Simulated scan of single mutants.
Amino acid sequence: MYMKKRSLFLVAVLSLTLALGGVFGCGSKEPAAGSAPDKAKEGPAIKISSKTFTEAALLGTMTLQYMEELGYPVENKMGLGELAVIRPALTSGQIDLYWEYTGTGVLNLMEHEPVFDADESYKLIKDWDAKNGIAWLDYAPLNDTYGIVVRSDIAEKYNLKTTSDYVALVKKGEGLKFVGFPEWEGRADGLPAFEKVYDFKMPKNDYVNVAMGLNYETLANKKGDLALAFTTEPRIVTDKLVMLEDDKKAFPVYNAAPVVRQEIVDAYPTLAEDLKKLSSVLDTKTITELNMQVDVEKKSIEEVSTTFLKSKQLLK
């Protein structure tokens, strides 16, 4: 079963911090100074949270800043924890809103088999969670899942754009080194499923097994030509790698969406449409570049969030 991959080892520690009152900046946040009085919205305070890894923190911070700009009464509960911590906090009312991934909902909450279509995955978890009093608002185009990346020189040499392009080369006998992880090679929903969807067999001599995280170094050292990667990793940008289109949909979809307690949605009829304006501008390329600004360029999450929202005219 696919799991969100970052910071899972923090769950136990973060569970304890939740019991002690939360982590990161969990204090209340008043409407922005200078907001027009008629801009403020009347209703219950909205406690906005996030998971702890960079991408999740960016999504949460953008939501907090944007909603504050619109006059919603918000409280900052950023960085609460991973799924085992943040989901119970949502369903119990300790928080009201955070961003979750459709694939995580389908696989980990519903315990459903992987789904490879974005709309189908979203509808499944949205309908399932409605009975829990949780609303999944419109999902963003960004898809944080597995993908195949190629060194730019290899992509140019063979004119590689889709995964099918790569498979066609394998079937012709072209010896391209594919970098993967041991756990992915043996999993039913890993390499075997990938081979089945694309109707080919990975040559054993061309499969390079490395520990997760060493895939980029292996490509950089030219000990591999292609590699399994996560689609929103900053090194795709910094290393100038080419992400192949998963044209036959071998990897489950993980679109990010705001998940909100239904009573908050009921209290604010404009909330869904307002957040759609944010989610609609967050595609895979955009979030990857924003992740890079934080993880590689070492900018603060608040700075990156503010600059991006201003560039999209979602913040003054």
Rank of each mutant, 00 (worst) to 15 (best):
Leu8Lys: 08
Leu10Phe: 09
Val13Asp: 03
Leu14Cys: 04
Leu14Ala: 03
Ser15Gly: 15
Ser15Glu: 08
Thr17Trp: 07
Thr17Cys: 09
Leu18Ile: 00
Gly25Arg: 01
Lys29Asn: 09
Ala32Asn: 11
Ala33Asn: 11
Ala33Gln: 14
Pro37Val: 13
Lys41Val: 14
Lys41Gln: 15
Gly43Leu: 12
Ala56Cys: 14
Gly60Tyr: 00
Met62Ala: 05
Tyr66Ile: 00
Glu69Phe: 04
Leu70Ser: 09
Val74Glu: 06
Gly79Thr: 06
Leu83Phe: 06
Ala84Phe: 05
Arg87Glu: 09
Pro88Glu: 01
Gly93Leu: 12
Gly93Arg: 06
Asp96Asn: 15
Asp96Ala: 09
Glu100Leu: 11
Tyr101Arg: 00
Gly103Met: 08
Gly105Glu: 06
Asn108Gly: 15
Leu109Asn: 05
Met110Ile: 06
Lys123Glu: 13
Leu124Met: 15
Lys126Gly: 04
Ala130Pro: 00
Ala130Gln: 08
Lys131Trp: 04
Gly133Tyr: 08
Gly133Asn: 12
Ile134Tyr: 04
Ile134His: 02
Leu142Gly: 00
Leu142Cys: 14
Thr145Leu: 12
Ala155Met: 11
Ala155Thr: 10
Lys157Cys: 08
Lys157Gln: 14
Thr162Val: 08
Tyr166Ala: 03
Val167Trp: 01
Lys172Ser: 15
Lys172Thr: 13
Lys172Ala: 14
Glu174Cys: 08
Leu176Ile: 13
Lys177Tyr: 11
Phe178Ala: 02
Phe178Thr: 02
Phe178Arg: 00
Glu185Tyr: 10
Gly186Ser: 12
Lys196Ala: 15
Val197His: 06
Val197Ser: 09
Asp199Tyr: 07
Asp199Lys: 12
Pro203Cys: 08
Lys204Pro: 14
Asn205Gly: 13
Asn205His: 02
Asn205Lys: 02
Tyr207Gly: 03
Tyr207Asn: 07
Asn209Pro: 07
Ala211Lys: 03
Met212Asn: 10
Met212Leu: 12
Gly213Met: 01
Asn215Gly: 15
Tyr216Asn: 04
Gly224Val: 07
Ala227Tyr: 04
Ala227Glu: 01
Ala227Asn: 02
Thr232Asp: 03
Arg235Ala: 07
Ile236Cys: 08
Val237Leu: 09
Asp239Ala: 12
Val242Trp: 03
Leu244Gly: 04
Glu245Arg: 02
Asp247Trp: 06
Lys249Tyr: 10
Pro252Lys: 00
Asn255Trp: 09
Ala257Phe: 08
Val259Cys: 13
Val260His: 00
Val265Thr: 12
Thr270Ile: 03
Leu271Ala: 06
Glu273Phe: 07
Leu275Glu: 02
Lys276Thr: 13
Ser279Trp: 03
Ser280Met: 07
Val281Leu: 01
Val281Cys: 00
Thr284Val: 14
Thr284Arg: 02
Lys285Ser: 14
Lys285Tyr: 13
Thr288Glu: 01
Thr288Pro: 02
Glu289Ile: 11
Met292Leu: 13
Gln293Tyr: 13
Gln293Asp: 15
Val294Ile: 01
Glu297Gln: 14
Glu297Ala: 14
Ser300Arg: 02
Ser300Gln: 10
Ser300Pro: 10
Ile301Trp: 04
Glu302Trp: 11
Thr306Phe: 12
Thr307Asp: 10
Ser311His: 03
Leu315His: 12
